[in-house]
Design a protein around this nucleic acid. Structure first.
Lengths: 183, 183
DNA sequence: AATTTTGTTCAAAAAAAATTGAACAAAATG
DNA sequence: CATTTTGTTCAATTTTTTTTGAACAAAATT
């Protein structure tokens, strides 16, 4: 480094280019609260806390942030942030943004509910629906080759699961259309 | 006990009243498969395996089952089954059924998708939405009392979260209406 | 009223999931 | 081309969640 040994995120020289406020490692109380809200939110979706923290921080940060900065602001490990960002990128909940004069990748939150929902449906829900479909088909053929006294009962139940899945698929489309329309 | 010491579920006398098949501790392959499907299904909802096993077993059993029987068929602990049944009862996913001549409580699966979805929404989703609403109101007042350079950005973001919540609530109603209509 | 049956509770154990951090690779810098 | 920066990977650790099982209470049975 040019100016001093052991230069780091905390090096005053790094901060001089941008407003002190937005680059400070300290989170504002409002930001902490928003992040806490997201941590709770993602728990409902079965996602780890760190993912909620990362998305929340990006959502409530005016500028795109680099991995380093996320690590120091949230005080969680680089590994967690790296994995969390990959997950969020795969879902389309976060996108990379080019920041001139900085070699590091920067990220912002994708904040359109429709996009978030679609990403979650594609990444988390559809794969499950599809594997259920395969298993269900196997079940149907098992039921056809069954001639126990309860065979009819089993067939009725399996048909019912098939109905659930069908309606589940319809619901996802309805959700999608609804989020496309609403403001 | 009248007939022998250590009489249990396995006592032949208990079985004599009903068909051997449906009272056997052995699960049929079809039943195992259906249960596995439910175990996967409830994982998407963030519920423990045992809950999926219990619901699945009841769903794919022709007669209502007592706690004892669930324990021996699934080979899981009495504590798990007791807790799992309570949870499912609270959700309205399982209901008690009177079986004449048997002191034990018996349960069947509630198999209407609409009821299941409503129970889950009431028991798991709504409480979260409500606590989010409270936190969000606090956030709004924090944002009003904030005069940092980023204040406008924060306000915009908080407004956006409010929109998400509003649309989320609308979606739950749409889901409900849809499940009421469809066959 | 003693005993057995039935079901709940909860502390401890086990299992599962998330997080850390150090080693590593790739790319940029000097 | 040696060094630094940036980001990934994954085994080990920590944390969280789930399950177990024994103690207990309530109700029914003998």
């Amino acid at each position: 480094m040019s100016s001093s040994p052991q230069a780091s995120i905390h090096d005053p020289e790094r901060l001089s280019q941008e407003s002190m406020d937005s680059n400070s490692d300290k989170l504002k109380p409002i930001q902490r609260e928003v992040i806490a809200l997201f941590v709770n939110g993602v728990r409902v979706l079965g996602l780890p806390k760190s993912v909620g923290e990362i998305y929340g921080l990006l959502f409530i940060s005016p500028e795109p942030l680099a991995l380093d900065v996320i690590v120091s602001r949230l005080e969680i490990s680089k590994g967690s942030v790296s994995q969390g960002l990959r997950f969020l990128r795969n879902l389309g909940a976060v996108k990379p943004v080019y920041v001139s004069g900085d070699r590091r990748d920067h990220f912002t939150a994708v904040a359109e509910l429709k996009k978030l929902a679609n990403g979650f449906i594609r990444g988390e829900l559809n794969p499950n629906l599809e594997s259920a479909t395969i298993r269900l088909d196997e079940l149907k053929s098992m039921a056809r080759n069954d001639d126990s006294p309860n065979s009819d009962f089993f067939k009725e139940r399996i048909r019912r699961i098939g109905n659930w899945r069908r309606r589940g698929g319809m619901l996802l489309k309805i959700v999608n259309r609804f989020l496309g329309r609403t403001t």
